[in-house]
Design a protein around this nucleic acid. Structure first.
Lengths: 191, 191
DNA sequence: AAAGTTACTTACTTATAAGTAAGTTTGGCG
DNA sequence: CGCCAAACTTACTTATAAGTAAGTAACTTT
């Protein structure tokens, strides 16, 4: 019937990603995916057995995206500063253009109501993210670009926490919040 | 029938607060309130016409609590440092003991799915909070306790964002996150 | 003591959610 | 050409959600 057969699965994943990152697990239903696509709920179940499976796939996909992005950052061999800026730009785009949040936010908020699979994927994502940011912080300090006098791990944690919060406050208080917070992060690193 | 008649409304509000701050608007139902209390859903509707009314009341109550707490902080007339520490202790307790989040987090995440009343209350809370933290930052700089070279408003925003993020990351990565992040905030202020 | 008010309960409605089973269309292949 | 599997749809089930209307027990006021 419809022409682009093989891309339906990808289409579902894209919409699920937008909704999951935009509203959280409990904030959207299959209908929010199927109706705008002109398909039926059962079509989603054909590709993803359960909502848990679908959302796990969403986070796994995000992890892959991040892996390839950060891999690219690292390959470019640039300075820690340019790598941090790339990640900050990535987050900035997520908040301001896509108007959505890091999946960690959405999982953390409703943690008690979520299937174990989804929680597990989120935990892995949090470790991926922190490991990457920690490496960037270490590198930045070695290169003399960043200045901070605590463990690199702690600094990375603090930076990530601040960005998580920026996404929330931007929704409530306006988009200008994002650049102010990013500016402050750079400032606190001595940039 | 049941003895403590006048306190039912307060009981409902307390449980709704725990659930709202712990799981978000879409993460709990009336049953989660009524069942453990041994009452019926309709009893909740008697005290609060709709879920929107109930959750608006939860946030309004949180605003009152905060108003009196910050009022007390200010009255004690202590240094900005002691006021910041009091707020940090308040947040620390919320995350570690009550295992819940600032209502701003839960509203921001599912903003698109929420009734206007609830959004309005959250917006007011965000302004209350930022106004208070901004005053503390200004005071701290005047007193020579805090060091930062940007607008007090921006610093306050950044501190609040970081604390919002700490609540999330603590759920996914463990409670030690909270103290690390708080330590970093103090450190970045020159404490 | 009668009437009214408060604080509920019972019983219901309506809507929406996730999920399933069985049937249907379409394109590729022997 | 006919068969088969992939990719769906139709039609359904089951569960749960918010919300409502009508009734009732107990306290309060006149």
């Amino acid at each position: 019937m419809s022409v682009p057969r093989t891309s339906t699965r990808e289409h579902i994943l894209k919409r699920a990603t937008m909704l999951f990152q935009g509203r959280g697990y409990n904030g959207f239903s299959f209908k929010d995916i199927s109706a705008p696509m002109g398909i039926r709920n059962a079509a989603i179940h054909y590709h993803f057995r359960t909502k848990s499976d679908l959302c796990s796939a969403v986070i796994a996909r995000y992890r892959d995206l991040l892996k390839s992005e950060t891999g690219d950052f690292m390959k470019h061999g640039g300075s820690a500063k340019s790598q941090l800026d790339a990640y900050l730009a990535f987050i900035r785009h997520e908040i301001l253009d896509a108007r959505c949040m890091c999946p960690l936010t959405n999982v953390a908020v409703a943690l008690d109501t979520l299937p174990g699979e989804v929680r597990a994927q989120a935990t892995m994502l949090s470790h991926d993210l922190l490991a990457y940011l920690t490496r960037v912080m270490e590198l930045g300090r070695e290169q003399g670009e960043f200045q901070f006098n605590c463990a690199a791990e702690q600094k990375a944690l603090s930076v990530k926490a601040t960005l998580q919060g920026a996404g929330q406050l931007a929704r409530l208080m306006g988009p200008q919040v994002v650049d102010q917070v990013i500016d402050q992060i750079r400032c606190d690193l001595g940039l």
